[in-house]
Design a binder for these strands. Structure first.
Lengths: 351, 351
DNA sequence: TTGAAAGCGCTAACAT
DNA sequence: ATGTTAGCGCTTTCAA
């Protein structure tokens, strides 16, 4: 620790050349006499020179840092997204600064400001921004932005990587309808909070409408921050005499909460209650019952977002506005009861 | 985007003072005329000045970046560790750069070099370094290092935040012994890979020895990178005529793999096979069966590590060598069969 | 209390 | 092919 950090000028002096020559060797720019080159490289090794990226970034007026804002990295969906980003980024010479917004707008803003100070080369954000005015923060940032998972609810100039939340929700509900369900509740992230919540609600609603099923507002349950109130919501839902036979859970944590509630209250799944959900991942094949629903390509979502960002960066920040919609995977699972089958057995319905 | 980024000199010019005065205002150093101060602050707002941390870091020769290397953020244990770090770091003005080593030494080295270039203020690492020579990389880095989860197998000058892996493993095995098990296998991360694996193996071994149970080498199963070979290992283990009645799974992914194997091969848990494991977390209360074992305080591990690091940093890098051992939590779960009870029922054992 | 000026470590014109 | 030099945007002596 007594030894100061060695810098370009040190190895220049050691080698007997100028700093710019050393720089050229290190950056493989211009021609450099092979012999000089070798001597420099030797010096770099013997002196154990480590380039200072901070200085370099200052000079180049940009960094290779990607700022990432997700809800909560502790959620398996987001940890995969981040992993997807990090892998692709690192392979391409970029690195990843991660933040957790907990779905709180103020934290998103606060982190964005930090990232701007840090001169990150771009941002990948699961945004909760609600007004075009707020999006200005991103548009004026002067760096590429890629929205993942969520996006603003209006026409945006930024790139987005999402799934088709509307259609996915609709299809999930359709599955329930196909199995004879009519009383289908949706348990959703606070709807005013974000685009995905709105879209998923729309999908649920339209599936019902198209099937000629009445949309009951008491079958819409909105959870708050970190599902804090979900236990009570579920109690409300299941204490009413009009109980749903099936539930659309719009993310993994909600699905888990419903499962837990069911376990604790002796509600049998799927006999008493069917569940379909988003993020029905079960990487280790150990869920019992296995959740029925769909899986978002989280790793890929991260990868694609990083790809778009880095490409923009390489094109010197030329703004592209790609709107990527990723495909999801359906999983059958065990949590949907077929009411027809049962009715059939009861002689209430003929084939 | 047409507008260049505004810098200190811009607001100096705008306000009619010198850059150094502006800097002083922004850093709350020295006395500044309150009126000047206010004018500067106004200018900062109207011009929307964003400090450039890169320039600042270059000048100060240090950053507020914490480099974090974990195995795989996709694993719930590590995602919690990272979350613990990030939360504490951000609250204290630091930010977190995350990497996934996949438990590969070469990636650890590669990431460390990147971090050194980035001038991070410290490193939090789940290390796989195997030789004192390799640890030199960290010791010569000239920045605080905190090892989490794992640590080098020799006396180290760096701080560590771990659990008592030896004792934890021993206690888990003791639980099995207390329930009448004798044929207890250990399924472990590749033992030569890291300290935790060695310690956990030792704990398993000594629990058996102290109970007068013969230690059978065929009951030691080592998995490789990402449990790639675990399916075959388990087949080997269970095809032998000498089958274990119980298993110590030394981490969550291993426990899951065992569960999955059991599901797929109609091995009943715990009737046919008991399991105890590390990282038996079940945050949502939805595991069936619920794993028996212990829980590491992952969030706290991250927090404490960040705390130590940041403290060192604030003391101007004065090296402290704290060796923190965190407490774990036991969870009963459903995956341990009591052989006494059964034997008792069969009349083979009296109370 | 304020300003001028040096310099953090590097890159890239420009000059040779 | 190589060296000289001027910054990148900021902090911080030193002087006034």
């Amino acid at each position: 620790m007594g030894s100061q950090k060695v810098k370009l000028s040190d190895i220049a002096q050691y080698t007997g050349v100028s700093v710019s020559t050393v720089s050229r060797v290190l950056n493989n720019k211009n021609r450099v006499d092979p012999k000089v080159r070798e001597r420099v490289l030797d010096a770099v090794k013997t002196l154990n020179y480590i380039p200072n990226e901070v200085a370099r970034s200052l000079k180049k007026r940009s960094t290779e840092a990607i700022g990432v804002i997700v809800n909560d990295i502790t959620n398996s969906f987001f940890s995969k997204v981040v992993r997807g980003i990090e892998d692709y980024a690192y392979k391409n010479g970029y690195y990843t600064i991660v933040c957790n917004s907990d779905s709180l707008l103020e934290r998103e803003i606060s982190y964005t400001q930090m990232f701007l100070k840090l001169n990150v080369c771009g941002l990948i954000v699961d945004t909760r921004c609600k007004t075009p005015k707020m999006e200005l923060m991103y548009e004026q940032a002067g760096i590429p932005i890629v929205y993942i998972d969520n996006k603003p609810m209006w026409e945006t100039q930024c790139s987005t990587v999402t799934i088709n939340n509307y259609l996915c929700a609709k299809n999930l509900v359709q599955t329930l309808i196909d199995h004879g369900h009519k009383d289908i509740a949706i348990i959703n992230e606070n709807e005013s909070a974000c685009w995905t919540a709105t879209e998923r609600r729309r999908g649920w609603e339209n599936a019902l409408k198209e099937a000629g099923i009445k949309v009951k507002s008491n079958f819409i349950v909105n959870t708050t921050y970190k599902n804090a109130n979900i236990e009570n919501c579920l109690k409300d839902l299941f204490l009413k005499k009009e109980m749903p036979t099936a539930i659309l859970a719009t993310n993994n944590t909600i699905a888990y909460s419903v499962l837990k509630f069911a376990f604790n209250h002796n509600i049998r799944i799927p006999e008493d209650l069917s569940i379909v959900c988003f993020d029905a991942d079960d990487d280790y094949g150990i869920m019992r019952p296995r959740l029925s629903g769909l899986i978002q390509p989280a790793l890929e979502m991260g990868k694609v977002a990083a790809q778009i960002l880095i490409n923009m960066n390489r094109e010197n920040g030329v703004k592209v506005c790609e709107q990527i919609t990723l495909k999801t995977t359906e999983v059958a699972g065990d949590t949907v009861r077929d009411l027809w089958e049962e009715n059939n057995c009861n002689g209430k319905r003929s084939i």
